[in-house]
Design a protein around this nucleic acid. Structure first.
Length: 489
RNA sequence: GGUCGUGUGGCCGAGGGGUUAGGCGCAGGUCUGCAAAACCUGUUACUUCGGUUCAAAUCCGAACGCGACCUCCA
């Protein structure tokens, strides 16, 4: 089995991945809050951990991947009254809260499907696990690390730290930092310390989403859902917990605290965090006018976009940067990614129609191990992609008859594409033919044959007319040494 | 202000004490009826200032820039 090293935020080091249970791997990733259309901020973690999921599976683990749907207890960014995000939107649109959640869940799934992100093994809804969350809160109360106040329950950070734990161990913050930098806000008087966080919140009368509990009607605090659902489906502790860097504090920090309080040990072995994305060097935000949804990317409908970008262009672009680096979306960079992606796909098509040489003279045996080495080094997808540009060059050179690939070499290269580029990086050939492919192939062969005849007769008018009219319907004709080929633009 | 991260050539981005990243772009060439495609060649960089070292883009320190988080929601 491959030795995979992953960067553990907890230790700030790359560590060899060793599962808690031989042959099995459990991973939990914080999923979307379903109150709005999916955007780039959703694509990055989904793609990053999709690659991890695919790779762990590929190297032989039986993987259970849990990614939650958060559908309770949300507030608008600039909300004024603590009203539940989903409830608020529901009232505006005259829909049931769960109808809104379902609608955006479907939208999220559609976008992820287009990005070729595999569905996780289990996708639990927070609203479906209220009982488990209440049990968690009870446990923490019984352990003495929480207190009830006016119908809400808060985690007692000071008590927790006094008992040799450290709230802040993941993010590097000390309690003093937090106390001195926390502003005084309304509603804080229920807490003993401003750093305390809610385990259970009392619902105001206006709240639509509410559940009965030993402390009255209310809803769970944000951090409770991940602890409860991770435990339920992956055990406690489990292997890997992932999410965006923006969730490190307070969300993941609080999950660690909740778990220690409830069970006396850590929730998981490895914490992985993907970095954030920017648009033209700026963070994406509704107020900045650069908030672009995935649909707008696919359709090119946002004013900042000079053209549409296909799902695979976006996936390729994201994978061309390491997941712990920030990635900046700019038109120039996206166009470069689009061209690079097409180059690789075109090389694959060329490979498929290559005539094997009786004797090969190109070196193709080292790529496989180098791909593994890159992936084992904390999922270094940019290096894998760079290897494929080398492979593309090897294919093109052979197609140009400068070098030769034997049948075995061709099989090996084809295997590399299937395993790494398609299988693990999850790219796919978007211009690959659909159901009609047989028909289209046949038509195109006929047309290109006619053009070849025209060319043989030096009838340039006819041959150019064929080329131009094909271009008009989005088909590019490419003349090569062995006749013409075509591709969809 | 605090915490975490980051600063690479025209653009995007790996790497990371001495040995080519890669892509896109641009320039020249091969091929071609022309064009495109493909191939070849060229374009060689690490924010600034100190320090460590035989040797620093790579390590250490400081400054500056950028990003996330630091609050109620998730």
């Amino acid at each position: 089995m491959q030795e995979l090293f992953i960067y553990n935020t907890l230790s700030r080091n790359k560590e060899l991945f060793r599962p808690l249970h031989e042959g099995h791997a459990g991973m939990y990733v914080c999923g979307p809050t379903v109150y709005g259309d999916p955007h780039l901020g959703h694509a990055r973690p989904a793609i990053t951990f999709d690659v991890l999921f695919r790779y762990l599976t590929h190297i032989g683990y039986q993987v259970r991947y849990v990614r939650n749907i958060t559908d309770v207890g949300h507030l608008e960014h600039d909300a004024d009254d603590g009203e539940d995000k989903i409830a608020k939107k529901a009232r505006l649109e005259q829909l049931e809260p769960m109808e809104v959640a379902q609608y955006y869940t479907n939208r999220y799934h559609d976008a992820m499907d287009r990005l070729n992100v595999l569905r996780p093994s289990i996708e639990p809804h927070a609203s479906g696990h209220i009982i488990e969350q209440i049990e968690l809160v009870k446990k923490i109360l019984n352990a003495g690390y929480a207190y009830e106040s006016n119908g809400s329950v808060y985690f007692d950070v000071r008590k927790y730290n006094a008992d040799t734990h450290q709230y802040g161990c993941l993010s590097g913050r000390t309690l003093d930092d937090q106390l001195s930098t926390t502003r005084q806000l309304a509603g804080q008087e229920e807490k003993r310390e401003t750093a305390d966080f809610a385990l259970w919140k009392k619902a105001q009368p206006s709240h639509i989403m509410r559940w009965p509990s030993p402390w009255g009607d209310g809803f769970p605090g944000w951090h409770a859902e991940c602890t409860a659902m991770g435990t339920k489906y992956l055990g406690n502790p489990f292997d890997i917990h992932g999410g965006g860097m923006d969730l490190m504090f307070p969300h993941h920090e609080s999950e660690i605290a909740q778990n220690y309080a409830a069970t006396g040990h850590e929730p998981c072995r490895y914490w992985m965090h993907n970095n954030m994305i920017t648009i033209d060097g700026q963070k994406m935000g509704k107020s900045l006018g650069n908030f672009i949804t995935l649909d707008e990317f696919f359709g090119g409908t946002h004013p900042l976009l000079s053209q549409p970008y296909s799902p695979m262009t976006i996936r390729f672009f994201i994978l061309q940067a390491h997941y712990r680096s920030t990635v900046d979306f700019g038109n120039e960079a996206l166009q470069a990614a689009e061209k690079g992606y097409h180059r690789l796909m075109e090389a694959y098509r060329t490979l498929l129609r290559l005539t094997p040489a009786t004797k090969g003279d190109a070196e193709v045996s080292t790529y496989r191990q180098r791909c593994y080495d890159a992936l084992n080094d904390d999922l270094n997808t940019p290096v894998v992609i760079s290897l494929f540009f080398d492979i593309a060059k090897a294919i093109n050179t052979a197609a140009d008859h400068r070098t030769h690939l034997a049948q075995g070499d061709i099989e090996e290269l084809k295997g590399l594409f299937d395993t790494f580029l398609f299988g693990i990086l999850g790219l796919r050939d978007e211009s690959a033919a659909d159901n009609d492919s047989g028909l289209v192939e046949g038509l195109m062969r006929t047309i290109l044959d006619l053009r070849a005849t025209a060319k043989a007769n030096k009838d340039w008018t006819t041959s150019d007319r064929i080329r131009d009219s094909l271009a008009a319907v989005g088909i590019a004709v490419k003349d090569g040494k062995d006749g013409a080929t075509w591709e969809r633009k």
